[in-house]
């Protein structure tokens, strides 16, 4: 099977000079659902930002970094940034950062609109993305009137409307009540798309993801079947994780 995503020897430091990524390599196959776990500050969010070329594109924050990222065999460079960003749908941890428009429609339409699609197609994509997250009636709602759970689902819709090949979610279940969490889990299970999800929610990992990557201090310390990793108590305690 071909790799949709390939990351090779990625290094990165923020402007304070402390390394946040120290040689990260892994690959993902089409249709795979992978969990990314590790303590706070491990570098999960930083890694995810690299997957659609955000940090290297911002010289202000970019001190030194190297390595490469390829999506569908295309190497991420400045020239194909727009293509890669359409292929990798990145959902940020805080939905108030992700949803920056006054209305749900404007937010879900933002991606397709900036891909240069015609208005008809944009409308159609908004409809189907909202349907995919079961929020069809919410098109004309104001973002600030949504509950946290609704915001998280709309946030996923904002990238689904770009029809990405890979969905990258940063701590999607953080801050949700049990019902919101349950709805989200069902949604993630049903979405037929390759997925990389960072989380501290080990029950969610156990329930949804066949494969788990463990990160700590900017490096991948384990990568394998979720079953095996959750059995390895030594590994879990060493990296501040808990058995579900």
């Amino acid at each position: 099977m071909t790799n949709v995503l390939q990351v090779h020897d990625l290094h990165f430091s923020y402007h304070d000079g402390r390394p946040a990524l120290r040689g990260v390599s892994f690959a993902m196959c089409a249709g795979e659902k992978v969990a990314l776990v590790g303590p706070n500050g491990a570098g999960k969010s930083t890694l995810m930002l690299h997957l659609n070329g955000i940090l290297p594109d911002r010289p202000r924050d970019f001190v030194h970094g190297r390595g490469e990222v390829s999506v569908e065999e295309k190497r991420l460079t400045r020239d194909n940034l727009p293509v890669i960003r359409a292929l990798v749908g990145l959902v940020f941890q805080n939905p108030d950062d992700q949803l920056f428009s006054p209305t749900v429609f404007e937010d879900v339409a933002f991606g397709p609109l900036h891909m240069g699609l015609p208005m008809k197609e944009v409308e159609a994509r908004v409809e189907s993305a909202l349907e995919a997250v079961r929020m069809s009636g919410f098109r004309d709602r104001l973002s600030h009137h949504l509950s946290v759970g609704e915001k998280k689902r709309i946030a996923i819709a904002t990238v689904l409307s770009m029809k990405p090949q890979i969905l990258v979610l940063d701590e999607p279940s953080a801050g949700l009540d049990p019902r919101g969490r349950r709805t989200l889990i069902n949604l993630l299970r049903e979405l037929p798309i390759t997925m990389l999800v960072s989380t501290h929610d080990m029950k969610l990992v156990q329930e949804l993801f066949p494969r788990t990557i463990v990160m700590d201090e900017g490096q991948i310390v384990a990568d394998g079947q979720t079953r095996d990793i959750l059995e390895n108590e030594e590994l879990l305690t060493a990296h501040g994780l808990e058995k579900p």
Partner: peptide, 24 residues
């Protein structure tokens, strides 16, 4: 800091300095 994260979120969805607006 939030404006930085919002900017990232815009970049991730294809913003490249020129803003498209809708007039429905």
């Amino acid at each position: 800091e939030r404006s930085d994260r919002v900017y990232n979120a815009m970049l991730a969805r294809g913003y490249a300095g020129h803003l498209e607006t809708i007039n429905p």
